[in-house]
Design a protein around this nucleic acid. Structure first.
Ligand SMILES: NC(=O)c1ccc[n+]([C@@H]2O[C@H](COP(=O)([O-])OP(=O)(O)OC[C@H]3O[C@@H](n4cnc5c(N)ncnc54)[C@H](O)[C@@H]3O)[C@@H](O)[C@H]2O)c1
Ligand SMILES: NC(=O)c1ccc[n+]([C@@H]2O[C@H](COP(=O)([O-])OP(=O)(O)OC[C@H]3O[C@@H](n4cnc5c(N)ncnc54)[C@H](O)[C@@H]3O)[C@@H](O)[C@H]2O)c1
Lengths: 217, 217
DNA sequence: CTAAAGTTGTGAAATATTGCACAGCGTGAT
DNA sequence: ATCACGCTGTGCAATATTTCACAACTTTAG
C-alpha cells in the first residue's frame, strides 16, 4: 500500500513537470487530445520516452486518439502534487532572490512562496514582492508554523552550507540551491543545486564543438 | 590533430567547471595539492568519478600526493576555455536578466557579458548594470561585431522560440535558455535549458519521498 | 632496505537511461 | 464486416554513466 510504485527517476519527474506545463498551455488553446510524439518535442526526446514516462503515472493513452489532455494533467498532478498547496520558503532576498520571489509568488496553484528570510536587517521586517521577509532568527519557528518543507536557497556561496544546515535542522525536506556550492547532508534531505555558472561554461564550451543538439530540462 | 579527444560528456564538462571553481578557492586559501576524494565531495560523486573526469584533461595526478592544484586549474582551463575571453550576449533584461547581468558581468576572466538586448524601448539605449542595452534590431550586427557566439536567453516564454531563431540565424553557436520552453533547432547549435520550475517541482516531489541525497550540478 | 599506508589510473562490472521495434488495439474508410 | 493505418504499451537492445576493484607507484616509518 505504502509502496504502490517503486521508484520514479529524477529525470522522469522533471519531464513530467514540463509535460504538464505544456499540456496546460494546450488545454488553454482548446486542444483536448495529444500524441506522444507531440509531447516528445518539448523535451527533445523520443515518443517512446514520453510514453514510458507516462506509464509511470498510470497509462491513460488510447490507441489512435492519443492521450486526453485534461485527464493527463490530472494524473500527473496526482503524482507530482500534494493534496494541499505546498508552502515554500525563500532564503536570501538579493538580486536573484527577488527575481524568484516575483516569479513564483502567487502564480501557481500547487505551491507558493509564503515567506522570505534574510539576515540583512534592512530587508527583514519589510514586505518584498508581496511577501513578508523575516529575520533569520525566526526561521525555525516559521517553518514549523507554516508547515514549510521545501526551501529555495539564494544566499551567497559562503553562507550556503551554514544556512542549509540550519534549514535541515529545522526540519526542511528539500532544498533548491542556487549558490555555487555543493550541500552535503547525511540525512534524507533532497538537495537540488542549479549551478548557472557551470551551465554557462558548458554552453560556452559546446559553442566551439559542433555537437548536435541535445539535452532538455 | 583536429580530433585529439573523441568526446567529453556534458556531465563531465559541468563537473570540471565545478572542480575548477572549487580549486580556485582552495588555491586562494593556500592549499597547493588536492586528492580526488576531496574533490568528489563537491559534486557528491565518488573519488573514482573525479579521477575519471580528470583523465579527460590529461592525468596530472601523482600517487600519494594527489593533484597539484595550480596545474589542474591550468589544464582544466586549457580544455574549457578558449584562447581569448568569450563575449556573451544577454537577451531580455527583465527581473531575471538584470540579476544575471549583475552577477556575471565583469567578474570572470574567461567570459563576460558584453551586450544586452531588449525589445522594450524603455530599456534599450540605456546602460544597465554597467552594460549597454541595445535594441533587438541591432542584434545581428552586434553579434558579429563583438564576435559573440554564446547567448543567455531570459525573455518571456512566448518570445523564446522566436528570439532563439533570430539568434541562430545571426550565427550564435550556443544558448543558455531560462525560458520554460524547449528550443528546437535543426542546426548544430547547442541549447541548454535551465528550467527552474521543473527543478522546484522536482524538489517539492522529493520532499515527500525520503530519498537519500543525490545529484549534483 | 622493507613494509605499511594511501593514492592514482583504469579495465571491467554494474546501473541508469534511452531508443528500437513490434504486437495489439481503436478508428475510419470501403 | 473487413482492412489499412496510426498510435500506444512494452520487452529488449543499445548507450551512457557510475562504481568497483586492483595493480602500480610514492611516501613515510621502522
Ligand atoms: N544573481 C544571479 O543572477 C545569480 C546567478 C547564479 C548564481 N547566483 C547565486 O545565487 C546566490 C544569490 O545571488 P544574488 O545575486 O542574489 O546575491 P545577493 O548578494 O544579491 O543576495 C544575497 C542575499 O542573501 C542575504 N544573506 C547573506 N547571508 C545570509 C545568511 N547567512 N542568511 C540569510 N541571508 C543571507 C543577503 O542579505 C542578500 O540579501 C549566490 O550564491 C549566487 O552565487 C546568483
Ligand atoms: N524571474 C525569475 O526568477 C524566473 C524564474 C524562472 C524562469 N524565468 C523565466 O525567465 C524569463 C525571464 O523572466 P523575467 O522574470 O526576467 O521576465 P520579465 O518580464 O521581467 O523580463 C522579460 C524581459 O524580456 C523582454 N522581452 C520581451 N519580449 C522580448 C523579445 N521578443 N525580444 C527581446 N526582449 C524581449 C521584456 O522587455 C523584459 O525586459 C521568462 O521566460 C521566465 O519564465 C524567470
Amino acid at each position: 500500500m505504502s509502496k504502490n510504485q517503486k521508484k520514479i527517476s529524477e529525470k522522469t519527474i522533471e519531464r513530467l513537470s514540463a509535460y504538464r506545463r505544456y499540456l496546460k498551455d494546450l488545454l488553454k488553446k482548446g486542444k483536448d487530445r495529444v500524441y506522444s510524439h507531440e509531447l516528445s518535442q518539448i523535451v527533445s526526446g523520443t515518443a517512446a520516452q514520453v510514453r514510458r514516462d507516462l506509464m509511470e503515472v498510470g497509462c491513460n493513452g488510447c490507441s489512435s486518439k492519443g492521450y486526453e489532455i485534461s485527464l493527463l494533467i490530472e494524473e500527473i498532478s496526482k503524482l507530482l502534487d500534494c493534496s494541499d498547496k505546498q508552502n515554500i520558503a525563500l532564503i536570501g532576498v538579493g538580486n536573484l532572490g527577488r527575481a524568484l520571489l516575483g516569479y513564483f509568488s502567487g502564480s501557481r496553484d500547487n505551491f507558493d512562496i509564503v515567506a522570505a528570510f534574510d539576515s540583512d536587517p534592512g530587508k527583514s521586517g519589510r514586505i518584498i514582492c508581496g511577501r513578508r521577509c523575516y529575520d533569520m532568527e525566526q526561521l525555525p519557528a516559521m517553518l514549523g508554523e507554516l508547515k514549510i518543507n521545501t526551501a529555495i536557497l539564494a544566499v551567497p556561496a559562503e553562507s550556503a552550507e551554514k544556512v542549509a544546515q540550519t534549514l535541515i535542522e529545522s526540519g526542511i525536506k528539500a532544498i533548491l540551491n542556487f549558490a555555487p556550492r555543493h550541500i552535503t547532508t547525511g540525512s534524507g534531505v533532497f538537495i537540488e543545486t542549479l549551478d548557472m555558472t557551470s551551465a554557462l561554461e558548458k554552453a560556452i564550451y559546446f559553442s566551439r564543438k559542433n555537437t548536435q543538439q541535445r539535452k532538455s530540462t
